[in-house]
């Protein structure tokens, strides 16, 4: 018998985790590309903060390190605790840390687009929320909430969202 091996990584569970991390990273990068921030926040670096998933931060910080959005260079920050969270353009909070969302939301200013991965938008109160639907990673958009803060959700995101409210 010829040897049969798993590809990419020896540990298939590690490969599966890496796969999910990459998918989420790519979505987050696309959110940054397809949401338009109020003019006041379109200068300086474009900051993406990650809370609750160091793997995701590491992937983003490695793969998207030299990326820019228009004139803004993308910078990634990993927050080790919720108290460290400060102003950023896009903040992702992992499912494991969703309990802190209400508290964090109180401290966020109008610059920050909050991305979560909870059961649904209503439970997270965020503007974009990751959900798994029939084994697929999808996203929901709270467009009205985003627009109240003067964010403009691009047509691509609206079209490809699993749900928009």
């Amino acid at each position: 018998m010829f040897p049969v091996t798993y590809s990419a990584q020896q540990d298939p569970s590690a490969a599966a985790k890496a796969l999910k991390t990459k998918m989420k990273s790519m979505y987050i990068y696309q959110f940054a590309k397809n949401v338009y921030w109020p003019k006041a926040y379109t200068t300086g670096d474009f900051t993406i903060g990650i809370y609750g998933s160091e793997e995701l931060f590491n992937f983003l910080n490695t793969s998207f390190k030299d990326k820019s959005l228009g004139q803004q260079k993308i910078k990634f920050t990993f927050f080790k605790s919720s108290s460290e969270i400060n102003d950023c353009h896009l903040l992702f909070i992992s499912k494991e840390q969703q309990a802190v969302i209400p508290k964090v939301q109180k401290t966020l200013n109008d610059k920050t687009l909050l991305v979560t991965e909870g059961e649904n938008l209503a439970s997270t109160g965020s503007m974009i929320n990751f959900v798994y639907v029939q084994n697929r990673l999808k996203f929901q958009i709270n467009k009205s909430k985003a627009e109240k803060k003067d964010f403009t959700i691009g047509q691509t995101l609206t079209k490809l969202a699993y749900q928009t409210i």
Binding site: S7, A8, M23, Y27, Q30, F64, L137, T156, L160
Partner: peptide, 27 residues
């Protein structure tokens, strides 16, 4: 088939791919 699923995301999906492509390759 397992490796194909892993490879299509980890090896073939370009980080600059647009959202439609990301969704298609996930599918």
């Amino acid at each position: 088939y397992h490796n194909l699923g892993v490879d299509i995301i980890l090896e073939e999906l370009d980080i600059d791919a647009d959202l439609e492509m990301v969704i298609l390759m996930q599918e």
